[in-house]
Write a protein that binds this DNA or RNA. Structure first.
Lengths: 210, 210
DNA sequence: TTTCGTGGTAATTGAATGATTACAAAGGGA
DNA sequence: TCCCTTTGTAATCATTCAATTACCACGAAA
């Protein structure tokens, strides 16, 4: 790919353009939230004009819903890939699956915006349209871990708690401030363990082109 | 108090009115986020006109920052009260302090909006003004738990993770949907334990006057 | 009783923003 | 060549919303 945002916008099949917009929207929504993001910011990030974004998705709300759906699907796919490799035996998950699922979760930050878009959905529980979708997605994840991975509710709770802490640390943009304070590095190392370097690399790359 | 929103707005000392606005803003910001909340919604919730809100705090941003500061202070006060009662012995926290701190955390939902305003601050890490404040507040909490309560970084991490999950469940408004799906009750019971009834009561009351 | 500080609002403004409309250009058949 | 679909933009609209302005009313002090 020619990488940097196109100066001369070339004609591209709608389906492909659609994916570009969804990727851009995922990043922008993930960073600024549903209310805080503008369709124009998303359009610029995708290298096209604002009206085209609106025409392709109808409304900003629809666009966010599709971003949310995609993120939930990618999360489910990632988890199910791990579970397929290490399925529960007699309903009990094999040793080490929790760590592998956690690693798969962190790896999702490479597909930029997914985790933060999910998080932005979670804190939109008040919204009459987005709220129900976010709840359904959250419960779907809960069920995958409980029913398909074979974890106990208590274990799933702990797993989700760890995930929510990681989401929060990313949303806070603490990785960018890792050198500001020793405590920052300490908690990040504690939360991300061996994945800390990956997290730092990805968040630094994201800050660069912002 | 005459409870329900005043029809005839009576003259009240500015300091007192200020507290009313902060309380209202805490609720509205907690529910809709910084970008999603409007000064008019806050004004209505406080029973006054929109210009008065702006004049008292200068800008919406200032108002949010003060809400955030207050929330962080109240959290610190609540934690320090528990720690003062059960201080670490030789740098090691006594048995059961973690549970008591967790209980103190959940109790904060009675002061409506605190937990969700904190959460809304956390996901505003990208904001050049709000972001730094949110990071400082988060780190301050981390240090209280590590240095004043005497917990290890690992334990603090787990404690914060539990808190973030609770924040997320509240923001998702899952307690309002507890009867929609057995899995909802299961995870809520798992996350809030003996405090589940309190959570349900408070969130139901909040839904009522919304 | 005038005056001044305090506590408030109505009306308005200006900018931001989601959405719409009208138009243009590329390109592939017939 | 002509036309029609697809891909795109420029211009504009309508609304929302934070912020400003100009004003009002009460009450205490002089």
């Amino acid at each position: 790919m020619s990488s940097v945002s196109e100066t001369t916008t070339e004609r591209i099949p709608a389906a492909e353009r659609r994916e570009q917009i969804l990727a851009a929207a995922s990043r922008v929504f993930g960073e600024r939230g549903y209310a805080g993001a503008t369709t124009d910011q998303i359009a610029r990030a995708a290298g096209i004009s604002q009206p085209y974004v609106v025409r392709m998705f109808g409304t900003k709300e629809n666009l966010f819903l599709e971003v949310l759906d995609r993120a939930q699907i990618k999360l489910a796919v990632a988890f199910r890939a791990v579970i397929a490799e290490f399925p529960p035996v007699d309903g009990v998950p094999p040793e080490g699956v929790g760590a592998r699922l956690g690693a798969a979760y962190v790896d999702l930050i490479e597909d930029r915006g997914i985790l933060l878009s999910l998080m932005q959905g979670f804190i939109s529980g008040h919204d009459p349209v987005i709220g129900p979708r976010a709840r359904v997605g959250f419960l779907a994840t809960y069920r995958i871990l409980r029913d398909e991975a074979g974890f106990s509710p208590e274990y799933v709770r702990g797993f989700l708690a760890d995930g929510m802490l990681m989401n929060t640390l990313l949303a806070l943009q603490l990785p960018d401030a890792i050198d500001d304070d020793p405590a920052t590095r300490e908690i990040l190392a504690c939360a991300f363990q061996s994945k800390l370097d990956l997290v730092i690399d990805v968040t630094a790359a994201q800050k660069e082109d912002a």
